[in-house]
Nucleic acid binder design. Structure first.
Lengths: 95, 95
DNA sequence: TGTTTGTGGTTTATATTATAAACTTGTTTA
DNA sequence: TAAACAAGTTTATAATATAAACCACAAACA
């Protein structure tokens, strides 16, 4: 039906999509875990997490585990909704 | 299973994906038809068709219909295969 | 007690991309 | 014949993705 619904550019990015895909399945995840799973470089991941965070798609909290800094990410309700919308739009492209 | 399979950057683009999605369902399609269906500007479409063409994902032929130039596009076997691979990879992100 | 190695990131620079604006070529219409 | 139109292409710009370079701190040497 409806032609081609625009795809949320924030989600239509390989790394950000992988991050969201990962986060949607867990309570929360640490930076290093996400980095490993997505095979991203730290710099790239840092930038993309920032974008998702600024869009309120995820919540990022910084803390210390012993003496080591730990960055933890959690998908928000807004993020879940955006992801679902994106997936539905995408289905219009790939049947 | 398998982490996140890389997504063919040539297909991971809203407009090129829409074009491929369109072409996969028809024998062939004219430039103006694709333009209308995708709501793209002519310039953007021209550029993206060129990229798909250079990758041999589509075949572009120029002819005349009466006195008007007509550009016709047709997906190739390579294109169909790439599209299918892309869709499968994508499923790893959205399922 | 330096100094070097490792961890956990961030900032910055660069190369690529997507996109629209401006242009071209030819045709039809007023 | 000039103006508007059709069908694209070329070029300029803004946005993006990405990696390289960097920073702060801790632990392990020497």
């Amino acid at each position: 039906m409806s032609g081609f619904t625009p795809l949320d550019p924030l989600l239509h990015s390989q790394l950000r999509l992988a991050v969201m895909s990962l986060l949607i399945g867990v309570e929360s995840a640490e930076f290093t875990f996400i980095k490993e799973k997505t095979q991203a470089t730290a710099g790239n991941l840092s930038v993309q997490l920032d974008k998702l965070s600024k869009a309120k798609y995820i919540e990022v909290t910084k803390a210390f585990k012993g003496k080591k800094p730990v960055t933890t990410c959690k998908i928000t309700k807004v993020g879940v909704a955006a992801f679902e919308t994106y997936v539905n739009a995408l289905k219009g492209y790939i049947e």
